[in-house]
Amino acid sequence: SKGEELFTGVVPILVELDGDVNGHKFSVSGEGEGDATYGKLTLKFICTTGKLPVPWPTLVTTLSYGVQCFSRYPDHMKQHDFFKSAMPEGYVQERTIFFKDDGNYKTRAEVKFEGDTLVNRIELKGIDFKEDGNILGHKLEYNYNSHNVYIMADKQKNGIKVNFKIRHNIEDGSVQLADHYQQNTPIGDGPVLLPDNHYLSTQSALSKDPNEKRDHMVLLEFVTAAGITHGMDELYK
């Protein structure tokens, strides 16, 4: 796709999030870079409003799984890469995230190029959380598991539907599940690639910047598309 050509090198990323969870309002600002050749993201996020009212790991899918245009699609799968094909005009990404036995996040993001920078601007609203639950009670460990993110075409809306389940580790050794339902639709009216069913395999590492006084998260992530085999004719070339 034409959009794919915008991702040949390292691309700067800007992320802006405004959130409200159970009436606790907050903002997060992030910057870093993405390299789609390797499916690599390096980002640093800062809570610009003081202390973040929710655990950082609960925002990873909104912040970095928010820029799935940096996923590495192998050559034989490039015609299934909706995310890059929607660029530079970008796409709207909407999600509902259900935390098992707790509340939910609803998010709406616009992901697009502004100049040479890929920008992810998000509004997040969280409701029905227990004040002493795993999320508002800050009981999650500061780490992140690997996940597969399942993608299918949504021809009606000229976009994709995505769903997956995140496993958050809790300090007591148990797990907090979070079910994600995602819809992506193009902002522009140019042609986009509608994929066959496949998935993104994601690995994320969270860390801290020892010199950063503000509440923050440093993230390194690798994302690769998989799940579609080479056609038989490919094998015999």
Rank of each mutant, 00 (worst) to 15 (best):
F129V: 03
F113Y: 08
N134H: 04
K51T: 11
S27T: 13
M217L: 07
K44E: 01
K51Q: 03
M217T: 03
M152V: 13
K208N: 06
V28M: 02
M152L: 10
E89D: 09
P195A: 07
D116A: 14
T42A: 12
P210H: 05
V175A: 10
S146N: 12
Q156R: 10
S71N: 02
A86V: 10
T117A: 06
K157R: 14
Y142N: 04
A86T: 12
S146C: 08
G19D: 00
V111E: 00
Y199H: 07
E4R: 14
H216P: 00
H180Q: 09
P88S: 04
H168R: 00
Y38N: 15
V218A: 04
T49I: 02
L219P: 00
N158Y: 06
E221A: 01
I170N: 14
A225T: 05
N197K: 09
K213E: 14
K51R: 11
G66S: 00
L194Q: 08
L59P: 00
L177H: 11
T202S: 03
D154N: 13
Y38S: 15
P53S: 01
V175E: 11
K100T: 10
P53A: 02
N145K: 05
K84R: 02
K84T: 01
E171A: 08
G231C: 14
N145Y: 10
K155I: 04
S204F: 01
F164H: 03
K161M: 12
L14R: 14
S85F: 07
D101A: 06
K165Q: 14
D132E: 07
E4A: 10
K161R: 11
F45L: 10
L59R: 01
N22D: 06
N158K: 13
E114A: 06
K106Q: 13
R72L: 15
N22T: 01
F7Y: 05
E89K: 04
D233Y: 15
P57H: 03
D101H: 04
H168L: 08
L235P: 14
G133R: 04
M217R: 01
L43Q: 01
A178P: 01
H80P: 01
M232L: 11
G231A: 15
Q183P: 00
A109G: 12
V92L: 06
M152T: 12
S71C: 14
K125M: 08
N104H: 15
K130M: 07
V223A: 03
L220R: 12
I127T: 14
